[in-house]
């Protein structure tokens, strides 16, 4: 695994790491992938992928409103908000 791939994975998951840990993280990721790659040694071309480990199907809902307005409570618990909106650092230029 090269440094670029590690940087991409880090960006996609929005997780940063210290430069000094780069070697270790690269090695760890390599090991994880190597471990999982063992599965590739089995030929599964004739086997339908498992959709869910539970042999059950979903229960669905009727289309009825069950949620109340809890705006104040929700906004109060957010790291930053005004009277109406959740606020985050500006995401466009």
């Amino acid at each position: 695994m090269d440094k670029e791939t590690v940087a991409t994975i880090s960006y996609l998951s929005r997780l940063a790491f210290d430069k000094q840990n780069e070697e270790k993280i690269t090695r760890d990721l390599e090991n994880i992938i190597k471990f999982v790659d063992q599965l590739d040694s089995i030929d599964t071309s004739d086997i339908e992928p498992l959709k869910s480990p539970l042999e059950k199907t979903a229960k669905t809902r009727e289309d009825k409103i069950s949620a109340q307005n809890r705006k104040e409570q929700f906004l109060k618990n957010a790291p930053d908000a005004n009277d109406d909106y959740f606020l985050v650092p500006r995401v466009v230029e």
Partner: peptide, 12 residues
């Protein structure tokens, strides 16, 4: 909402 708040984005 990008243009309503100074330096911040509002989310609805």
């Amino acid at each position: 909402i990008h243009d309503l708040f100074d330096g911040e984005t509002g989310v609805d």
